[in-house]
Amino acid sequence: NKEHILAQKEVLTPIEYEHYVKHLFDIGEITKELYIELSS
């Protein structure tokens, strides 16, 4: 869920976080809207 993803932002580097969010989007775990929101 969104809270879990945002928690990852605390422990990952910005680049790792971007890759993580992109991966979730690629596998269909999150919607495009959520992907855009989380990567901003």
Score class of each variant (00 low, 15 high):
19 H>R: 14
11 V>S: 08
24 L>P: 00
27 I>T: 14
6 L>S: 05
26 D>R: 12
20 Y>V: 02
40 S>R: 11
30 I>L: 07
30 I>Q: 00
13 T>C: 03
10 E>N: 08
6 L>T: 07
10 E>A: 10
29 E>R: 10
31 T>N: 07
16 E>R: 04
1 N>F: 15
31 T>Q: 04
6 L>A: 06
30 I>Y: 00
14 P>E: 12
16 E>N: 06
29 E>D: 09
19 H>N: 15
33 E>V: 07
30 I>D: 00
8 Q>Y: 07
24 L>F: 03
34 L>F: 07
28 G>K: 03
22 K>T: 06
14 P>L: 15
36 I>D: 07
12 L>T: 03
2 K>A: 08
12 L>M: 15
23 H>K: 11
35 Y>R: 02
18 E>W: 15
23 H>S: 11
2 K>C: 05
22 K>L: 11
14 P>Y: 08
9 K>R: 11
25 F>K: 03
11 V>C: 07
26 D>E: 13
4 H>M: 15
37 E>V: 11
19 H>Q: 15
6 L>N: 04
12 L>I: 04
37 E>Y: 13
15 I>T: 12
17 Y>E: 00
15 I>N: 13
15 I>F: 13
9 K>C: 04
5 I>E: 02
31 T>L: 05
6 L>R: 06
20 Y>W: 13
1 N>T: 10
25 F>N: 02
17 Y>F: 13
39 S>E: 06
1 N>V: 05
28 G>A: 03
13 T>S: 10
38 L>H: 01
24 L>T: 01
11 V>H: 10
36 I>M: 15
4 H>L: 12
40 S>N: 07
4 H>T: 12
8 Q>N: 08
24 L>Q: 04
14 P>I: 14
39 S>V: 06
40 S>H: 13
14 P>R: 13
32 K>D: 10
3 E>G: 05
30 I>K: 00
24 L>R: 03
9 K>S: 05
37 E>G: 03
20 Y>E: 01
15 I>R: 09
38 L>K: 00
27 I>W: 09
33 E>Y: 09
6 L>F: 06
5 I>K: 01
14 P>V: 06
16 E>V: 05
30 I>H: 00
29 E>G: 09
7 A>F: 05
19 H>M: 09
30 I>F: 01
19 H>G: 12
8 Q>D: 02
24 L>E: 01
11 V>F: 14
28 G>E: 03
15 I>D: 13
4 H>K: 11
28 G>W: 03
40 S>K: 07
1 N>S: 15
14 P>W: 09
32 K>M: 14
1 N>A: 05
9 K>V: 05
21 V>Y: 03
7 A>G: 11
18 E>K: 14
14 P>M: 07
34 L>A: 08
21 V>N: 00
28 G>R: 04
23 H>I: 03
15 I>P: 11
35 Y>K: 02
31 T>H: 05
33 E>D: 10
38 L>G: 00
38 L>N: 00
26 D>W: 14
29 E>K: 10
18 E>H: 13
28 G>S: 05
38 L>C: 02
5 I>W: 08
8 Q>W: 09
3 E>R: 06
26 D>C: 15
32 K>R: 13
3 E>W: 11
33 E>G: 08
10 E>R: 08
3 E>Y: 09
6 L>E: 08
40 S>P: 04
3 E>L: 08
40 S>M: 14
21 V>T: 04
13 T>K: 07
4 H>I: 05
26 D>G: 05
15 I>Y: 08
30 I>W: 01
26 D>V: 12
31 T>Y: 04
18 E>L: 15
16 E>Y: 03
11 V>P: 02
1 N>M: 13
5 I>T: 02
31 T>K: 04
20 Y>Q: 02
20 Y>F: 08
35 Y>G: 00
11 V>M: 13
15 I>G: 13
12 L>N: 02
29 E>M: 11
16 E>Q: 12
13 T>N: 06
36 I>G: 11
37 E>S: 09
11 V>R: 09
39 S>M: 10
38 L>P: 00
38 L>Q: 02
9 K>W: 06
5 I>G: 01
7 A>C: 03
17 Y>T: 00
18 E>V: 12
